[in-house]
Design a protein around this nucleic acid. Structure first.
Lengths: 376, 376
DNA sequence: CTGAAAGCGCTTACAG
DNA sequence: CTGAAAGCGCTTACAG
């Protein structure tokens, strides 16, 4: 039993907080007379005209300092930059984006970033894009397609220049909408013969088949499944069952669990599964967390893993190999997915000079690896 | 040794992709003559005027349908909504934000979301905010303060209405800048007597002290440290060392590792540490990943954990308790941090009617728990 | 290399 | 409950 020693404390302190909003127009100088009659809400921040006035140039020149510094005379550049620095001016990209139709925003729609490999994908995706001057708008869809679609509208209202999607199971209206806006789209973490645009992923069906094969080769005769029932889980299930069917195994016990998957859920699922299918000698779990939970349950049931019961997870939680060598897992390169997805988008965004009707329909299958320690 | 069985494959397919951008102005009708002479870039998307024309109302009314539907006559509302639906109109929030000074954006600046508890915080933070109509702009700072500061400018250019920051160690100029823009700020994952604005966190110093105490109570005489040297790690280190010093232990071996921390890094660090400090009988690791790596190394060295060597991690990787019961860890409620941070921001954003100079300086200490299985 | 004018697509603040 | 006018803070497309 865990012994908890807690120093938890909760305190709400209240103090004063002086409004420190800086004067919006230090040295507005000559611009003063030109101030609009209509003040829409209190003092706004600095505007490009404030910088321009101070630097003795036009607003256009200040704009160029940010967007095409090479087209500005070195002296002017320096002078403007100093004013920017001194005033602490930060351009308003809402205005800039509206004016230029370049939001410099890329949206990423993923089911979740908690406890999941998607977080790794988003991490590198974001790093790669930010190096290229883009920012990432993160949208978490949970695991429902309808939620994904309503999120898309929210996201499109920011006019992103590209979109990363998770999976390939999208509603028709989402696909249509995306086609209409005409921005580059990358689907990730799955594969299909009919991507919306570009794709970086792998086959869940093949994974299911490979895990079934793995179990079969090790003598399993009654493999079972513990997983959620989202599109990708169902694809793995299909591959798993079909490979087993080829080997003459058609009765495959299944325990469907609701997301989010966790160790606790896996721990509860295994006994339930075994109660219904006592002869089970192998279990393919929908995630490493579930697999670890199942392993814990197996331990309590005094089952030898992998001797009596083989357990395979999915997702490669790095630690799994270290702390639970009895488990088999399926490794997927989430980092490569994120980097490749970002590059695909950037290539399209940069090559836009061709403004073309014809784009490359790029697809990468990053594959996967079934990882098992044969001997410990 | 792991046996890899790979079906990895990489393929780049190229196909045609017809430009499917929809006609920007289906039924522009009466508006046609009023089209601006200057076409800035090809066909733009639908505008609010397109919807207005189709619905036979003014643009303002369409705007109200989205922003204050209760102020629109039911019939009008319905009619406009049908046109919106039919046309697939999505309002442009760049324009809306510019015009209203309400970006409906909240920025989150975190070091990383890969393999970390921050991802859990960001997950619930994002969920909570999106329910309230805000979206999250994610900015990954790595672990450097200078990078955090330059990121802030990038982020501020989107005019977010609130900001979540990780930690409390920020440069003065960042603090000043944030004070100047006057938006609500929540610092998280640490604590301080002088927050910029609001704070939801816990004391890393206290954690260090509590872990030292834990080790001491279990008879450790030569505790050591494996961790990074960011601000929070240093605070834990300080608490750890000072509590040990009180017990007369002043020589504390330390192995500083560069982020990102991982199992592999921990596995390498322990032997190095033991080479320099052979008598070590307890190690406080900066993360659970490091602790698991150290545990693996200890196993290879045939050291009994926790008998000969106690190992404590940090961060509560949920699985750790299940797969590595020999480890002690420090549990922190990342979910509560995310939810509370979001609520703090929302409370401020909603109570803005008071447009006040005086704000509550809210602080929550969510505490932590040292978790150890005493018997297995 | 630099600038005056017009416009990006919305919403605010009045009116009625 | 609805609308005409003005403006949000930038950038584009010309000129020079």
């Amino acid at each position: 039993m865990p012994t908890a020693k807690s120093t938890a404390s909760t305190a709400d302190k209240t103090g004063s907080h002086a409004g420190t909003r800086a004067d919006a127009n230090p040295d507005a100088g000559v611009e003063t007379a030109a101030r609009p009659k209509r003040t829409r809400g209190g003092p706004k921040g600095l505007r490009i005209t404030d910088v321009a006035a101070q630097a003795g140039v036009s607003p256009i020149t200040v704009s160029r300092v940010f967007n095409s510094p090479e087209s500005v005379a070195p002296e002017t550049l320096e002078r403007v930059r100093q004013v920017v620095q001194k005033l602490g001016y930060v351009p308003n990209r809402l205005a800039g984006g509206l004016s230029s139709s370049r939001s410099r925003l890329v949206a990423a729609i993923v089911p979740t970033i908690a406890h999941s490999l998607f977080s790794e994908t988003i991490q590198v995706f974001s790093e790669t894009l930010s190096r290229a001057g883009y920012e990432v708008l993160l949208a978490l869809s949970g695991y429902s397609a309808s939620s994904e679609e309503s999120l898309l509208d929210t996201v499109l209202s920011r006019r992103p220049e590209g979109v990363l999607l998770t999976g390939v199971a999208h509603t028709d209206s989402l696909r249509e909408r995306l086609a209409n806006v005409g921005i580059p789209v990358v689907e990730t973490w799955d594969t299909t013969a009919t991507p919306i645009d570009m794709l970086v992923g792998f086959s869940h069906y093949e994974i299911g088949a490979a895990v079934a094969q793995h179990f079969l080769e090790r003598g399993a005769r009654r493999p079972a499944l513990i997983s959620a029932n989202d599109a990708r889980a169902l694809a793995r299930r299909a591959g798993f069952r079909e490979r087993l069917a080829q080997a003459g195994i058609v009765a495959v016990a299944e325990e469907i669990v609701a997301p989010p998957s966790s160790v606790a859920v896996g721990k509860r699922a295994l006994p339930d599964l075994l109660a219904r299918a006592p002869g089970t000698d192998a279990v393919f779990c929908g995630s490493d967390l579930l697999a670890i939970g199942a392993l814990g349950a197996a331990r309590q049931l005094a089952l030898d893993v992998p001797g009596q019961l083989k357990i395979c997870g999915f997702g490669d939680l790095e630690f799994a190999t270290e702390t639970a060598p009895q488990l088999t897992t399926v490794r997927v390169d989430g980092t490569r997915i994120g980097v490749s997805a970002a590059r695909f988008l950037l290539d399209r965004l940069n090559g836009e000079s061709a403004r073309g009707e014809h784009h490359e329909h790029r697809v990468i299958d990053v594959g996967f690896t079934v990882l098992a320690r044969e001997s410990t």
